[in-house]
């Protein structure tokens, strides 16, 4: 992570998509994924349509497809369920390459894979075009409780510090010959987490005192998140509008 301004998935740029206010992008991304999720699984062309829509956004944002593909693979969090579904699903079954696969299970797996992948790609697009600070301001504009936004701001500011501390502890353990392989050897790591908590908490107490010394009143000074112009909303929401059109077409035709 950078100096607290960026995050690993951010791809700096000045495209139309980058310049849209974050709250517009968050809402647009959420609505788009919602359309994807609401699409019947048998409407195969619709999913190609969503992919095309995302490709159009990537072209506008100048995100190289290879950049996305690598990260989509690394981040792919699902599939435990998806892989098992064809084998555990109900009858009728299809014989394929010597395997007996459930028809409903296959469809279920496809459903999770297709929607999950489109979801990850949408999230990646949002993350790639929005710096961390803007995302927080966007959440604030979307009326997230001020306390939550403040905690998230401080958390992101100190996440690198605490993570680096955790890494130093790990290096220190390894330097002393720590090489655990089994759960019952995890004691040193767990005690490390215990001291990491104590250090984090005590750091929190020091940070709080330092903030008091600088005039902390309990709320962050109002950050300058400008309200999004109507043009911005129109531009940003064009994406979910197209997605909704695809979803409605798919619902009607299947």
């Amino acid at each position: 992570m950078g100096a607290g301004h960026s995050h690993p998935l951010y791809l700096p740029g000045t495209s139309v998509v980058h310049r849209l206010p974050a709250q517009v992008k968050i809402v647009a991304a959420f609505l788009t994924v919602l359309c994807v999720v609401a699409t019947p699984r048998e409407a195969f062309p619709a999913f190609a349509g969503y992919l095309l829509l995302l490709v159009a956004v990537w072209v506008a944002a100048r995100i190289p497809p290879g950049w996305l593909a690598r990260r989509a693979l690394i981040e792919a969090p699902f599939v435990v369920l998806a892989v098992l579904l064809p084998f555990t699903g109900p009858d009728p079954r299809i014989e394929w390459a010597g395997l007996s696969l459930s028809h409903a299970g296959l469809l279920g797996a496809w459903n999770i894979l297709a929607k999950g992948t489109l979801g990850v790609l949408t999230s990646l697009t949002l993350a790639a075009t929005t710096p961390m600070r803007d995302l927080l301001l966007g959440l604030q504009r979307l009326r997230a409780p001020a306390l939550v936004v403040t905690i998230a701001t401080l958390m992101l500011r100190y996440a690198d510090v605490i993570a680096a501390e955790a890494r130093r502890m790990r290096v220190a353990r390894i330097a002393r010959g720590h090489d655990p392989r089994f759960l019952w050897q995890a004691g040193a790591t767990a005690r490390g987490i215990g001291s990491l908590f104590v250090r984090s908490y005590e750091r929190g107490e020091r940070v709080h005192l330092a903030m008091l010394a600088r005039g902390w009143t309990g709320t962050l000074p109002a950050a300058g998140a400008a309200a999004a112009a109507r043009v911005d909303w129109a531009r940003g929401l064009a994406v979910p509008v197209v997605a909704a059109a695809v979803a409605v077409t798919a619902l009607v035709t299947t």
Binding site: L147, T150, T153, L154, M155, I162, Y201, G204, V207, H208
Partner: peptide, 8 residues
Amino acid sequence: APMAGLVT
């Protein structure tokens, strides 16, 4: 805020 931020 500071404490919860650090715990988070």
